[in-house]
Simulated scan of single mutants.
Amino acid sequence: MSESPESAHPRRAGTFSRRDALRYATALTAAGLGTAAAGLSAPTAAAAAPTLIDFAARQIPAADIRAAGHSGVINYVSTSRPGSNFGAKPITLPYAQSLHAAGLIVVSNFQYGKPGGTAPSDFTRGYAGGVADARTAWQLHTAAGGAKNAPVFFSVDDDINRDTWNNLALPWFRGINSVLGVQRTGVYGGYDTCRWAAESGVIGNSQVPGYRWAWQTRSWSNGQRFPAAVLYQHTIDTASTPGPLVGGIRVDVNDVMAQDCGQWNKHL
């Protein structure tokens, strides 16, 4: 997640195979990836996946996102933590409308707390916290025009072990499921977190067979790739390794790994 320069995610090199590239050879526009992705309709073996950016500092104009070659955004349906004032949290209806008007897609993500922040990591808040977070996320998602059947990706922005998953994160996701249902619940996290979420049955399915609502970050993944992830965060903005500038803001960059990655305009 791209919130502040003090975020410290390890980076590992990633590759995009010939097989992966060829998966994007057809139906990108029909899949709702917009005109920004239409130019990728005939990739070669060396071609890259369509990309989405995530950021928090402020709203980046749609024209700047298009000019940078990205297909859309993953934007927050959560508010800023105490003591912070992120201009892109939460996404607003006018901003979402400007993105759609430019042919860009929008995917929803929830993150309020973080390790070492002024609010604790969301996944530590248990079942009741999951209920509250899901209600907040859905209110902000729908207020911004988010599709009624689109998922929200809930962040586990930390390197957790299996005990932490079982005892803290899983009850939180069960609370989220009780409000949104499994099919509208997604996860952001490292390889193990994505795998455990899928195995525990707390995240839904993409319309593309074999894919789940998992947004994997390269952080804490030790070079492993979760094959069912619809999104893969390969570039993370940190103080030591800044992300690319888009509209004057440093951003994270994510590969779209399935034609249905949870974008609003595919889940009306």
Rank of each mutant, 00 (worst) to 15 (best):
A48I: 03
A42W: 14
R23I: 00
R66A: 15
T15R: 12
G69Y: 05
H70N: 04
P61H: 15
F16Y: 14
A13M: 13
I60L: 14
Y24K: 08
A8N: 06
A63H: 12
L40I: 07
G39F: 02
T35V: 09
P10F: 08
G34D: 03
D20T: 10
L22P: 05
R58S: 10
G14H: 03
M1D: 05
R18S: 11
L28N: 14
S7C: 08
G39H: 07
A68L: 10
S7G: 05
A13C: 08
T15Y: 04
S17W: 11
S4Y: 13
A30P: 02
A49N: 10
L22S: 13
R11D: 14
L33H: 01
D54S: 12
A36G: 08
A13F: 12
E6G: 05
A27Q: 10
A68I: 11
A47M: 11
R58D: 08
P50A: 10
A30R: 10
G72S: 04
A68E: 09
T51H: 02
A8Y: 05
R12K: 11
A13K: 13
M1E: 07
A27R: 11
A68R: 09
T51V: 14
I65Q: 02
A68G: 14
A36C: 06
L33F: 09
Q59L: 15
G34H: 01
E6S: 09
A49D: 01
L40W: 03
R23Q: 00
R58I: 06
S7I: 08
G34W: 00
A36N: 01
S4R: 10
L40P: 00
E6Y: 08
G34M: 01
A13D: 10
S4C: 12
A37W: 00
F55S: 10
R11M: 12
A8H: 09
A46F: 15
P5H: 09
I53N: 01
L22M: 07
S71Q: 11
A62T: 09
A63K: 13
D20P: 00
T35P: 06
L52N: 00
S4E: 13
P61T: 15
A27F: 06
L33C: 03
A13P: 14
S17T: 13
A38Y: 03
P50K: 07
G34L: 01
T44S: 11
S2Q: 04
A48M: 15
P5E: 12
A49G: 07
T26R: 14
Q59R: 13
I65W: 00
T51W: 04
D64L: 05
R19N: 12
P43F: 03
P50Q: 08
A30G: 08
I60C: 06
P61L: 02
A67P: 00
A48C: 10
A57K: 03
